[in-house]
Design a protein around this nucleic acid. Structure first.
Length: 812
RNA sequence: GCCGAGGUGGUGGAAUGGUAGACACACGGGCCUUAAGAGCCCGCGAAUGUAUAAUUCGUGAGGGUUCGAGUCCCUCCCUCGGCACCA
């Protein structure tokens, strides 16, 4: 008599048993070389609970981890909390509830949701970035940066979000707006801490070549770093001793007819000697343009600018080039000054045309037209094909060759110097916010900034603060924080830094801490690092530039410091996969606003975690966007119901060759598919196997193997079947993954398709051996009435044979 | 504008250059049941055709390579994602 599957009872029973017996504990086995570190990007425990979209990646890595353990790998699969962050603090401002409390309430919810989903994390390694045990080492790493000249404090224009009242890293400004609250960012001159990530720019580019990451992520990182080779050219200013230096990647110098500089450049370098008749106009222009936000400046459709009254002398022809100020030149790109080559740059063309500046032609494009350049479409830009004209010693050279020759010539003459520039800026890590890791630095009037001594770490986050933002860190309002602070150098009264660190600092090294989470003496022990790292499989979405770039930077610093064994290489994440978003059933992004959010708590009580897991993986390819479907969940549930019923009947004594072949094909396919994150096709092949077994019946051995194959996907039901129905010892998740045998896969009977001129006309069934012999297959095919009819009266030109698969008659 | 990923039934999707649409969902029909539910069986790209047999068309559009193209090459269109007055 079949017993109905009670998913609530079964799932809670086994979850408790797994936890009690600690079966997912990652154990270091130093003799074993076959370790795998399978990591999810740890979540920020937000107030709105986890939904099925977040779970997608976690289910994928869980299946992979379970599979690898069964394959005999020693697997590290941990989970933790990116617990510091702005939302908890904003919530505190609104409600008065301390971020520590709300964050830890949220963590409880997240953890419960992961547990009821049947995740096989090693919870003994749980990490919380807001705990002093963790952030002590975040501070220690900051000091390491400082001691190695990689952390510095500097007054400079920085991105300021007026709503969150804090500075932001460049990486946190999206289209001129704050990544969190969409408020347009303004520039402020502030004294802030930076990490010198630019020092690693080249290695952050080159390291990408050797790692297995989605190409779009690599491309985006490369674009963000924005490495550009060009030349800095220094010009004399007519009538003055001062000079002006421009950066260009395409020195089309015979075609240069003006210079444009950023407002910031003009303010800093030119204002003092601009002719008096131009002074007022220029300073008016600077006033308006410097006040604008980056967003306002970049979204202006018309080019604006003002002539400074100054001229630079073009080295190659002695011509006077007017110097203009314009807000389309960005102060932090290159030198903040650009030479205008309007014939060969569309933006320069629009500017020259508007202000009536010369537009000389020095390149002829592929169309051969060499007349005056009057329309934007006639501009031949760098990157297009073309040859130099009107350029003295460059005439006749190809575009690119001519540029190189120009640069050689300029360097020889001492007029310019080749340089490499980057879009990447140093990482601004100061935040004028409370809920983050305090920066462990002390300022002394005499000794300047000094790090807190190691044995005084951690610098604890004070709790007596006023959360309301006042344009400085809330920590400044603490009465205790500055009490008895002395200079670590001279011992005189001093004061602590009151800013906290960007939370991306925490997530830049948490994956290292997982290898040795309870170490009280080191951020992580060398041996543990060496055993587990680098991360073999890293799964998570978003953070394509920020987190992944910062974490790579940290790793490289630690690698250079010898804190990471050289044998591990200088990239931390060998393989990266990003799960696709799950959309609501209305095909919109899951959001409270649309009321289309589905959480594990909506699905698990009704269908069980196994159904949720199988459905999420079956929906479609792991890395593409896909909409949620409630009827799809029911389908997954039906499938597991069919599986369950297979174990309610007495197994057959013998298994048919057909089922055996299917089983071994499935063993092969499921293993390969899991390794390559093709969970959807792994499940469909398991469905095929179940359909075959349902039709033909199976013996106990086959049913055992089916349970093993399904165990990573539906861990609870398969444990129940394993222990209670086929009476194997606990736990199936410690059992060995089945191996397939080629001899069973070879089928006795093979279907060969017969084509005439590439069109399938019939198929013939032959035994395995005959199907591999061309002559035999051909004679069999000719016997077929239909084929004979087609071939009647035709001249056969050729016969194509694919062994065991296909025969194609090519006729005239 | 540049870069990247895509475009296959009513839907999600599957296909080392070799039977396009596996596996599911939805839908239609049937069995079982007092009934409902669950379960089981059958059908399901389009067209012609006799519910059969068979044939033709069909993977965004158009060309090409090949005995054979969803898959490779060229041109174009569309969708999504990222970047963008970057010199």
């Amino acid at each position: 008599m079949a017993i109905k599957y009670d998913h609530i009872k079964v799932e809670t029973k086994w979850q408790a048993a797994w936890l009690k017996q600690n079966i997912y504990k990652a154990t270091v086995n130093r003799s074993e070389k076959n370790k795998r570190y399978v990591l999810d990007m740890f979540p920020y425990p937000s107030a709105s609970s986890m939904h099925v979209g977040h779970l997608e990646g976690y289910v994928g890595t869980d299946i992979l981890s379970r599979y690898l353990r069964m394959k005999g790998f020693s697997v590290l699969h941990p989970m933790g909390w990116d617990a510091f962050g702005l939302p908890a603090e904003n919530y505190a401002i609104k409600t008065g509830i301390h971020p520590d409390k709300s964050t830890h309430d949220n963590i409880k919810t997240f953890k419960r949701q992961l547990e009821i989903s049947g995740m096989s994390y090693d919870w003994s390694r749980e990490i919380d970035t807001s705990s002093p045990e963790f952030y002590k080492w975040t501070q220690w790493l900051f000091i390491l940066m400082f001691k190695n000249g990689l952390a510095y404090k500097k007054k400079s224009p920085v991105n300021w979000c007026p709503k969150d009242e804090t500075v932001l890293a460049n990486e946190q400004v999206i289209e001129g707006k704050c990544e969190r609250c969409d408020t347009p960012v303004i520039q402020k001159d502030l004294d802030q801490w930076f990490f010198k990530i630019t020092e690693y720019a080249d290695r952050l580019v080159s390291g990408l070549d050797g790692i297995n990451w989605p190409s779009e992520v690599k491309v985006q990182q490369k674009n963000w770093i924005g490495r550009k080779e060009g030349i800095n050219i220094t010009y004399d200013i007519d009538g003055y001793s001062q000079k002006i230096t421009v950066f260009t990647t395409a020195p089309v110098n015979f075609g240069a007819s003006f210079i444009v500089v950023a407002p910031e450049y003009a303010e800093e370098n030119l204002m003092t000697f601009i002719p008096s008749e131009n002074q007022k106009e220029v300073s008016d222009y600077l006033k308006t343009s410097l006040k604008e936000t980056e967003l306002e400046r970049t979204s202006a459709s018309e080019k604006t600018g003002i002539f400074t009254g100054l001229y630079a002398i073009n080295h190659v022809n002695g011509k006077k080039m007017p110097v203009w100020v314009t807000d389309f030149v960005l102060a932090n790109v290159g030198t903040g000054a650009v030479q205008g080559c309007p014939g060969h740059d569309k933006r320069d063309f629009l500017f020259a045309k508007k202000f009536g500046i010369d537009i000389p032609r020095v390149i002829v494009g592929e169309d051969g037209y060499d007349g005056p350049i009057e329309k934007e479409s006639q501009v031949v830009e760098h990157g297009m094909k073309g040859k130099f004209v009107n350029s003295d010693f460059l005439n006749g050279l190809d575009f690119e060759d001519g540029l190189q020759k120009t640069m050689d010539y300029f360097e020889k003459k001492g007029w310019g110097k080749r340089v490499v520039t980057y879009h990447l800026r140093d990482w601004l890590i100061s935040r004028q916010r409370y809920w983050g890791c305090p920066i462990p630095m002390i300022y002394c009037k005499d000794c300047g900034w000094n790090p807190v001594h190691d044995n005084d770490l951690p610098v604890l986050l004070p709790s007596d603060v006023d959360f309301l933002p006042h344009g400085q860190s809330p920590i400044a309002t603490s009465k205790t924080f500055q009490k008895d602070v002395k200079c670590p150098n001279c011992g005189k009264k001093a004061r602590r830094e009151v800013d906290t660190m960007d939370t991306y600092v925490d997530s830049s090294w948490y994956f290292i801490r997982f290898t040795d989470p309870n170490n009280k003496k080191e951020f992580a022990g060398l041996e543990n690092i060496k055993h587990w790292l680098p991360v073999d499989d890293y799964v998570g979405g978003g953070h394509v530039v920020q987190h992944l770039l910062f974490a790579r930077f940290f790793w490289k610093v630690l690698y250079d410091q010898g804190l990471i064994d050289k044998s591990l290489g200088d990239e931390p994440f060998l393989k990266l996969r990003a799960p696709g978003w799950i959309l609501g059933s209305d095909s919109r992004k899951m959001s409270k606003r649309w009321g289309n959010v589905v959480t594990p708590d909506d699905i698990i009580p009704k269908f069980g975690a196994d159904t949720l897991r199988v459905y999420e993986m079956f929906m479609g390819p792991f890395d593409v966007m896909k909409p949620w479907s409630t009827s799809g969940v029911e389908g997954a549930n039906r499938f597991l119901g069919r599986v369950w019923r297979l174990y309610q009947e007495k197994p057959k004594a013998k298994v048919s060759a057909e089922v055996l072949a299917k089983l071994h094909q499935t063993i092969k396919k499921v293993g390969e598919d899991i390794e390559s994150y093709k969970f959807n096709t792994a499940i469909s092949s398991l469905m095929e196997l179940v359909n075959t077994i349902q039709e033909h019946g199976a013996d106990l051995e086959t049913l055992k193997n089916l349970a093993l194959l399904l165990a990573p996907f539906a861990p609870h039901m398969m444990e129940e079947v394993w222990v209670e129905y086929i009476h194997m010892t606990f736990s199936i998740h410690k059992a060995q993954w089945p191996s397939y045998e080629a001899k069973y896969i070879v089928q006795k009977e093979v279907t060969v398709i017969v084509q005439i001129n590439g069109k399938v006309r019939t198929q013939i069934t032959l035994d395995g051996r005959t199907s591999k012999i061309k002559e035999k297959v051909e004679s069999e095919a000719r016997k077929d009435a239909k084929i004979a009819k087609y071939l009647d009266g035709c001249e056969i030109k050729n016969i194509i044979f694919v062994s065991g698969k296909l025969l194609n008659f090519v006729t005239k």
